[in-house]
């Protein structure tokens, strides 16, 4: 099978890294080779965060080559644009309806690009929006946004839902398994 490339982006603290782990572990559980890559340290202090996940028969580079991502799963509207060059022609973008102001915007030195989603849509017809804040609230906690988004991604990938739920259940606190299952399903069915 051709390697599937998923690029996840967002802001430090949004749960990007855990989402990447869940996707890679689910791919392994489904019988694929998988690799993922991200950077810890300075990048986590409210900075832009990106995680590359690749799975298939045999994966070499843990990093996706520009122009080869099948899906960009973006946790934050503006961050999508930063990584758009990774998308392959005809690739899909999933955008969480959330804006996190960078310090340059908060202090008035820069403007948040208000029409960013429309500008992305103009270039990427296959753009889906996911109201993560609303769906995670429906699931029971804003902390489940990343699992909602994993659900939205899962619908596009063809790995069975129960494989996803098994991985998610193993990676979240036991008390929150039910809530996260609901979050996954809300994202999947959205």
């Amino acid at each position: 099978m051709k390697t599937v490339n998923i690029l996840i982006c967002g802001v430090g603290g949004q749960g990007v890294l855990l989402a990447g782990d869940i996707i890679a572990e689910t791919a392994i559980a489904a019988g694929f080779d998988a690799k993922k890559s991200e950077v810890h340290g300075m990048a986590q202090r409210g900075g832009s965060v990106v995680s590359h996940v690749r799975y298939g028969d045999r994966v070499n580079s843990p990093l996706i080559r520009e122009g080869e991502a099948d899906v960009i799963l973006s946790f934050e509207e503006m961050e999508t644009a930063r990584y758009l060059s990774f998308l392959k022609p005809g690739g899909a973008v999933i955008i969480n309806r959330q804006q996190v102001m960078p310090m340059t915007v908060a202090t008035g030195q820069a403007q948040y690009p208000a029409d960013i989603v429309d500008r992305i849509r103009a270039q990427v017809p296959n753009t889906a929006l996911c109201d993560g804040p609303a769906l995670s609230a429906q699931a029971g906690s804003a902390k489940t946004i990343n699992v909602v988004l994993v659900g939205a991604l899962a619908r596009q990938l063809g790995i069975p839902g129960e494989t996803w739920i098994a991985t998610i259940s193993s990676r979240v606190p036991p008390k929150t398994v039910e809530m996260n299952r609901k979050a996954f399903e809300l994202g999947y069915d959205d």
Partner: peptide, 14 residues
């Protein structure tokens, strides 16, 4: 890339 770059503000760590 065929995608036209969209300039966005930097997001340095804080």
């Amino acid at each position: 890339s065929s995608v036209q770059p969209i300039a966005v503000p930097a997001r340095p760590p804080v």
